[in-house]
Design a protein around this nucleic acid. Structure first.
Length: 218
DNA sequence: AACTCGGGGCA
DNA sequence: TGCCCAGAGTT
């Protein structure tokens, strides 16, 4: 496994590849951020940002999502994909917000994950972006890249990946590191087709070295 | 652990 | 055209 120092060296290289990597979901209103993060599952933030202006102009509070007919909400988010399940999720989420927290978005991860349709990843994004509580949200990109590079172990659970990253990265860089790992995973270290040939991290990458050796042999 | 949702982005 | 996706719930 990579040491703390090696991890930071790798992150510095990635930072130089994506100097502008940052969260594209920047809603100051915690409720709007929560909805935006739920919508962002399995699609890009850029796509979510196309529907949120109209959506948030129309829906201001959880009650608005609860009372609207499901079909109408589906139409309002149609262009982002998974719109049927997401529309249902948003209605359930709004209902649980009203029942558990009187319509207010709670500030702790523990309370957030109790809400319908909110997992650890969503909870971490909300606490870090809306409430400025440092966190590293582990999505599929962060998990895959961390495992390939050797920052953590292959068999690590999402929880273990998160703990390892928090241990090896200083808190003030958690947010930047999170987004840099996501950009690197999305544009270079892709799930099905990693571009090892042109990767500046190849020599320090556990999986990259393995792939290169296999290629020479095969 | 595998499956489901789904239209848009990209090769 | 076909493949891939900044998740979470269900089986």
């Amino acid at each position: 496994m990579m040491s703390k120092k090696q991890t930071m060296e790798a992150l510095d290289v990635i930072a130089s590849m994506y100097p502008d990597a940052e969260c594209e979901l920047t809603h100051e209103n915690p409720f709007e951020l929560l909805i935006a993060v739920v919508l962002s599952a399995q699609c890009t933030d850029a796509l979510v940002n196309k529907v949120t202006p109209g959506l948030f102009a129309k829906y201001k509070k959880p009650e608005d999502y609860v009372v609207v007919p499901l079909e109408e909400l589906e139409q309002d988010i149609r262009s982002i994909g998974l719109f049927r399940s997401k529309a249902k999720n948003i209605k359930k989420l709004s209902q649980s917000l009203i029942e558990l927290h009187n319509g207010e978005v709670p500030k702790t991860r523990e309370e957030l994950v109790e809400l319908a349709g909110v997992g650890r990843k969503t909870a971490n994004v909300v606490t870090s972006v809306a409430f400025n509580i440092p966190a590293i949200a582990v999505d599929t990109h962060v998990e895959r890249v961390s495992k390939r590079l050797g920052i953590c172990r292959w068999k690590d659970s999402v929880m273990e990946v998160e703990k390892t990253l928090m241990k090896k990265i200083p808190e003030e860089r958690w947010s930047d590191a999170h987004h840099q790992l996501i950009f690197f995973g999305r544009y270079h270290c892709k799930a099905q087709s990693p571009r090892c040939e042109t990767c500046p991290l190849l020599e320090m990458c556990r999986e990259g070295q393995k792939r290169m050796k296999a290629r020479v042999k095969g």
